[in-house]
């Protein structure tokens, strides 16, 4: 019976130790988190936020996850999520640049189509309708 009692106490200690481990997230990780969060906030109001709003939203979700991980004292998870957040910001920049380029291409294509139509009209003898 004593053995069972001590085993139970041991297990409880292990469990509780792991449960209060959140208080043990390093300051460096927390700083890293804050920097990442600020960067995401800045990104959200920049041109990237306009073009890659969905990615920013996902990144914000990741920031919340990191916050929770820190709150729960899971430094490893927190670090992983912060790493994800940073990568998502990079992704947001890349997607924003891609979409901006796509928009430009669309605008250019539209202009090209208009010009083609103008030229067709001219060649068909319909006159130059600008």
């Amino acid at each position: 019976m004593k053995i069972n009692l001590w085993f139970s106490i041991f297990c409880m200690l292990i469990f509780t130790t792991s449960a209060i481990a959140g208080e043990g997230v390093s300051k460096a990780t927390i700083d890293d988190y804050r920097q990442a969060k600020e960067a995401v906030e800045k990104l959200a109001v920049s041109k990237t936020g306009k073009y890659a709003k969905d990615i920013i939203e996902n990144t914000n979700i990741s920031v919340l996850k990191a916050q929770k991980a820190i709150a729960s004292g899971d430094e490893t998870l927190a670090k992983q999520i912060i790493e994800i957040v940073k990568l998502q910001m990079t992704l947001a920049d890349a997607v924003a640049a891609e979409r901006e380029a796509t928009d430009r291409t669309v605008v250019a294509r539209t202009e090209l189509k208009k010009l083609e139509q103008r030229l067709d009209n001219i060649l068909d003898g319909k006159g130059d309708v600008k």
Partner: peptide, 16 residues
Amino acid sequence: ITVAIVMSRIEKANQI
């Protein structure tokens, strides 16, 4: 995410 980033960059290059 890395793949997505590269895909975006490739797509951006294509668009450009």
